[in-house]
Amino acid sequence: MGMWELVVIFIVGLVVLGPERLPVAIRTVSKWVKTAKSLANSVKAEVSEELRIHELHENLKKAEQQELKDLSPELQSSLTELQKAAESVTHSYKKTQSDTSNNQQLDEKK
């Protein structure tokens, strides 16, 4: 939107709403715009993450077809990234399991 379009909208708003209600209306509209922008940004981030996951999955399929031998650097980096992600998931799962078993042991001692 250009400057003149904003001026026209402001003047129409001032005439229709009056000077008492115009600031409240501006705040409300700005909240809606901020909410819409944050929603759009979160959808954009989610879609890009899904595309990255899809690409990693395709690279993993290619690596499996080549039996994990003589991989291109791109496939090797994707495979390494997937292995690190799997290790972090299993590591946090082991932590949760050990915390649960420790809590159970403490409960049994009581």
Rank of each mutant, 00 (worst) to 15 (best):
S42M: 02
T90V: 15
T100G: 11
H91Q: 13
A85V: 13
A45E: 05
L75W: 01
S88W: 05
E20R: 05
V89T: 13
P19A: 07
R21G: 05
S42G: 06
S77C: 10
T90P: 00
K94V: 09
K62A: 14
S30D: 14
A25Y: 07
A45R: 13
Q66I: 03
K84G: 02
V43M: 02
Q97A: 08
T28M: 05
D99H: 10
H57K: 11
S92C: 02
E81V: 03
K44G: 00
E20S: 11
R21W: 05
V47H: 02
R27Q: 10
R52G: 06
I53E: 14
L79A: 04
E58A: 10
V24N: 10
K69Q: 14
E58V: 14
L51V: 08
L56G: 01
A25F: 11
E64R: 13
R52C: 04
Q83L: 13
L56Q: 03
S38I: 08
P23T: 01
N41L: 11
I53G: 01
D99K: 15
R52Q: 15
S30Y: 05
K84V: 14
Y93F: 15
A86I: 14
E67P: 01
K95Q: 11
Q66N: 15
S92Q: 14
I53R: 13
K61N: 15
S77M: 12
E81C: 09
V47Q: 01
E64M: 10
K95R: 13
K95A: 09
K69W: 07
K31V: 10
K37P: 03
H91C: 06
Q65F: 06
D99Y: 12
V47K: 01
D99N: 10
Q83T: 09
S101R: 13
L68C: 01
V29Q: 03
S98N: 15
H54P: 03
T100D: 09
V89W: 09
S98C: 07
E50Q: 04
V33Q: 05
V29S: 10
V43N: 09
D99M: 09
P23A: 01
Q66Y: 11
T100Q: 07
Y93K: 11
I26F: 08
V47N: 06
Q76V: 01
S42P: 07
T28V: 08
T35R: 08
E67T: 06
T100C: 12
A85H: 12
K31N: 13
T28S: 09
V33P: 00
N41A: 12
A45C: 07
S92Y: 04
K69H: 11
H91K: 13
S101V: 08
I26S: 06
E58Y: 03
K84Y: 02
S77G: 03
T100A: 14
K34V: 03
T80F: 02
S42I: 05
G18Q: 00
E58N: 10
L71R: 00
T100Y: 15
S42V: 10
A36D: 11
S72V: 01
Q83I: 12
S98D: 15
A85K: 15
E55W: 02
S42D: 08
E81K: 10
P73I: 04
S101L: 15
W32R: 06
Q65S: 14
S78V: 00
K44E: 06
S30R: 07
V29L: 12
L56D: 04
R27P: 01
T80G: 04
E50N: 14
L51Q: 05
A86C: 14
K84F: 04
L75N: 07
L22M: 02
V24M: 07
T80R: 04
N59P: 02
K34F: 04
N102K: 15
P73Q: 00
